[in-house]
């Protein structure tokens, strides 16, 4: 698999390590009410879709950036990659 790194172009997936579902960006607030239940969900439960999956890859043997890669789990086709930093900022509604 080749991952289209937004800064470095097509890179071999072997240069990356895989973490999992990009929802891991949405870390719950540990001080909020119901934090234990929210953290159980966050740490352990996964949608595990057969089809389009947005997921976190770390460019460990490269520029050490985190990417959100969109990939089809049925075919391994890679549909896009963004800097996880940009995705997280956009979700928080802040400027990139």
């Amino acid at each position: 698999m080749l991952i289209p790194h937004p800064l470095l172009g097509l890179r071999d997936a072997q240069e990356f390590t895989y973490l999992g579902d990009a929802r891991l960006l949405d870390r719950p607030d540990g001080l909020a009410d119901g934090a234990a239940a929210a953290f159980f969900d966050y740490a352990y439960l996964r949608d595990n879709p057969a089809g389009i999956h947005r997921e976190l890859w770390f460019h460990e043997q490269g520029d050490r950036s985190w990417l959100v890669v969109t990939r089809n789990t049925l075919t391994h086709e890679i549909l896009g990659a963004e800097l996880a930093r940009d995705v997280a900022r956009a979700r928080q509604g802040g400027a990139a």
Partner: peptide
């Protein structure tokens, strides 16, 4: 990596 493809890759 998550997969339902029933085949793997070269690495």
């Amino acid at each position: 990596y998550n997969s339902y493809a029933q085949r793997g890759n070269l690495p």
